[in-house]
């Protein structure tokens, strides 16, 4: 009964998250270059550079390498006729259960980067909460959206 949900999200999510991590590190790099300029021109203390380098290194290790890996391994979901179950989280593992009768509507969304990787994020709304499954394969997300919205039959008077 208490097994992990069966489905994984797309493997391309890994590359996508790494790109996000790289962008983040890039922003830090720009800031560090500015700091380097300040050190050079206005004699700011040099240990600032060491700190900046440390932060960039940490970011490369964590945001580009470790976190996307762990996150992808943890992300699981399962949709049955009765309910939707999600599991995610690196340090805090969260498992969510949404009965199908509570689902009010389903949306898919796709930003420019997601489109490049042919991925799409699906969000499932109940009357009170929104649950997202990030980075599903485009077509899979579309099928899922269709099947959830046909399964969802909200009992009006309960809301």
């Amino acid at each position: 009964m208490w097994r992990e949900p069966a489905q994984r999200i797309s493997e391309r999510a890994l590359s996508l998250w790494r790109v996000y991590g790289a962008i983040q590190a890039g922003v830090t790099l720009l800031v560090s270059i500015a700091v380097g300029g300040a050190v050079y021109f206005w004699d700011w203390p040099e240990w600032l550079l060491a700190i900046a380098a440390g932060i960039i290194l940490m970011e490369l290790i964590l945001s580009v390498w470790l976190i996307p890996d762990l996150r992808w391994k943890r992300w699981r979901y399962e949709v049955t006729e009765q309910d939707i179950e999600l599991q995610h989280g690196i340090f805090i593992i969260q498992r969510t259960l949404v009965p199908m009768v509570r689902v009010q509507h389903v949306d898919t969304e796709q930003g420019p980067l997601l489109r490049k990787y042919r991925l799409s994020t699906i969000s499932i709304s109940t009357a009170a909460t929104v649950h997202k499954i990030p980075a599903l394969d485009e077509q899979e997300a579309e099928e899922l959206r269709r099947s959830i919205s046909s399964l969802a039959r909200v009992a009006e008077d309960d809301v």
């Binding site: 989280g89 805090i92 593992i93 969260q94 259960l97 949404v98 509570r102 109940t126 009357a127 909460t129």
Partner: peptide, 12 residues
């Protein structure tokens, strides 16, 4: 029948 969703959380 009034509960919209339920979740459990657990740290490592």
């Amino acid at each position: 029948k009034r509960i919209q969703s339920a979740a459990v959380t657990q740290t490592i």
